[in-house]
């Protein structure tokens, strides 16, 4: 009985419901774009405010942005290496910021208060389309990084250290985007669902630790996504002898 009622209530959380936008004969998940535009707008406003008046002695927001920049540079430099990290730092940083802002925005802003005709607003990264888009961009990037840095020698990587590795390395090209996208998607969606169910069952106090855990996971997922993306690019440009 209880389980049944839970299931129907679970359905009330509207899992897998989307706000469809129809443009010509293509269909879009409107709620994903709405939240991502709001969050990215906020991010861009924040960044424009911080970089409006750059000084040699950083103050306030500029300090925070410089810390963030340094953090991203360290991440890119340790994973990609001194030689080419500059080319990829904006991409890695954008991935990190996009995932982080999406995750935290989804967790911190009470989107549920805004009623949509269908579906509900939430973290853009809780939609499989977003995470697959990010993961495919990472795949394209590391192929591009490898080919542009080493030319056709990039494919030596597939038979390194022995040709026995060839099938595994080819398989890796498929598992990398798959694991990237599903890890992010699963973590964020699971967090939203757990918090949603807990809020539904015990609306007081109890969800708060889980919400904090959700914030923690969200930040960690952003870091993991960016680090792995940088690692894959680093692996592709690495010179092995």
């Amino acid at each position: 009985m209880f389980f049944n009622s839970l299931l129907t209530n679970f359905a009330a959380l509207e899992v897998g419901q989307h706000l469809y936008w129809q443009i010509g004969n293509i269909r879009l998940h409107g709620q994903v774009f709405l939240t991502s535009w709001i969050l990215l707008g906020a991010l861009l406003v924040f960044i424009s405010l911080g970089t409006k008046k750059m000084e040699n002695d950083p103050k306030g927001l500029q300090n925070l942005l410089e810390f963030l920049w340094d953090y991203i540079r360290d991440l890119a430099r340790t994973q990609i290496g001194e030689k080419v990290y500059r080319d990829w730092m904006p991409f890695i940083g954008t991935l990190f910021l996009f995932v982080f802002v999406s995750n935290w925005g989804g967790a911190l802003i009470p989107w549920r208060l805004i009623k949509l005709p269908s579906g509900e607003l939430g973290a853009p990264t809780a939609d499989i389309n977003t995470t697959i888009a990010l993961a495919l961009l990472v795949s394209l990037s590391y192929f591009y990084a490898g080919l542009s840095n080493k030319g056709w020698r990039y494919f030596e990587y597939y038979v390194h250290p022995t040709p026995i590795m060839l099938p595994f390395k080819i398989l890796e090209d498929f598992t990398k985007p798959l694991s990237l996208s599903f890890r992010l998607f699963g973590n964020i969606l699971a967090d939203e669902l757990v918090v949603g169910v807990l809020v539904f069952l015990v609306p007081l106090i109890l969800p708060i630790p889980v919400m904090f855990l959700g914030l923690f996971t969200s930040a960690i997922q952003a870091l993991i996504f960016a680090t792995l993306a940088a690692y894959y690019i680093g692996e592709a440009v690495e010179e092995h002898h």
Partner: peptide, 23 residues
Amino acid sequence: NATLPLMAIQVVALTYILNSLFF
């Protein structure tokens, strides 16, 4: 659905915007 490629384009655009605005 088409959310995927559009999101990819959006992220690429964001990369260029953030590069000139932030990085």
